[in-house]
Design a binder for these strands. Structure first.
Lengths: 140, 140
DNA sequence: GCATACCCTACTAATTAGATAGGATAATAA
DNA sequence: TTATTATCCTATCTAATTAGTAGGGTATGC
């Protein structure tokens, strides 16, 4: 299951992407619009900013805004920053690979082989859906 | 990510399904073969037995064994018993549905709509792969 | 120079994961 | 009928994670 962090992060990104202009918008506005705890959202948006997806402006009239490239960024990128691995087991993760201590040979592990298929299917959606697609409910 | 409970449960089922005969086999044997903590595996197998997937026999020569139908049971059924929902958010779960408190209208939630697609893709794999397919690495 | 709004670190409460302990129960064999 | 074997069952424990909170620090703009 998705953590609330990821869910809230995606909702906030979607909120920003739905706006017509790209003027900075305050955390508090998003927080109220999407029913997300203010301080929790603050930390999530900071994470997304550090990851290079959002810009921020301090002081009056400040807030967060989408960077140009972010609309064309696949959901998979946000997912990895917010949630971590997309794979269901570390031994099939492309970006967070870890060996299983209990498993002598991945190639002969039924779980491993099935989870590769699940991962590929999930990836095909998350890599081929950009933030723009996401807010217009399009998926390749 | 899968919990160890689910991963170990699937490995144990796969171990049982790979055996030629269907004589009861002791927890300890599976535990050693698959490098799973004995007591932890004990509780997992008990869960699978209570769910109707395994039979058990006590005393000398006892142990766990597959019930007939279990070989043709889809992985999704084991997954739901061991892990819970297959969906990534409760509001798109078929078997463990819950509304999101923060979301006024599911139909207009970007997260909701994308996660339906992810769920459907994952389900198509887990529902169409039986335990038999699983151990022979087949997937529809 | 003051108000605004993000930046940053640390902390806490609640829950869950991953076991572990230890005895009860049932089946088999001597 | 008693000892042995192996599952059954409940309770407990520890560590990690999640979700959220507190409280300043820092930069911006009027």
């Amino acid at each position: 299951m998705l953590s609330r962090k990821t869910k809230y992060g995606l909702k906030a990104l979607s909120y920003l992407a739905k706006r017509e202009n790209n003027e900075p918008i305050q955390i508090e506005v998003i927080s109220k619009a999407e029913n997300i705890s203010l301080k929790f959202l603050e930390s999530i948006l900071l994470t997304l900013k550090k990851a290079g997806f959002l810009g921020a402006k301090k002081g009056k009239g400040g807030g967060y805004y989408l960077l140009e490239k972010t609309r064309n960024t696949p959901i998979a990128a946000f997912y990895r920053v917010l949630e971590g691995p997309i794979a269901l087991v570390p031994c099939v993760s492309l970006n967070f690979y870890e060996t299983c201590e209990d498993c002598p040979d991945e190639d002969y592990c039924s779980v491993h082989n099935l989870m590769i298929k699940v991962r590929d299917n999930t990836l095909s959606i998350l890599e081929n859906t950009t933030l723009s697609d996401f807010v217009t409910n399009q998926t390749l």
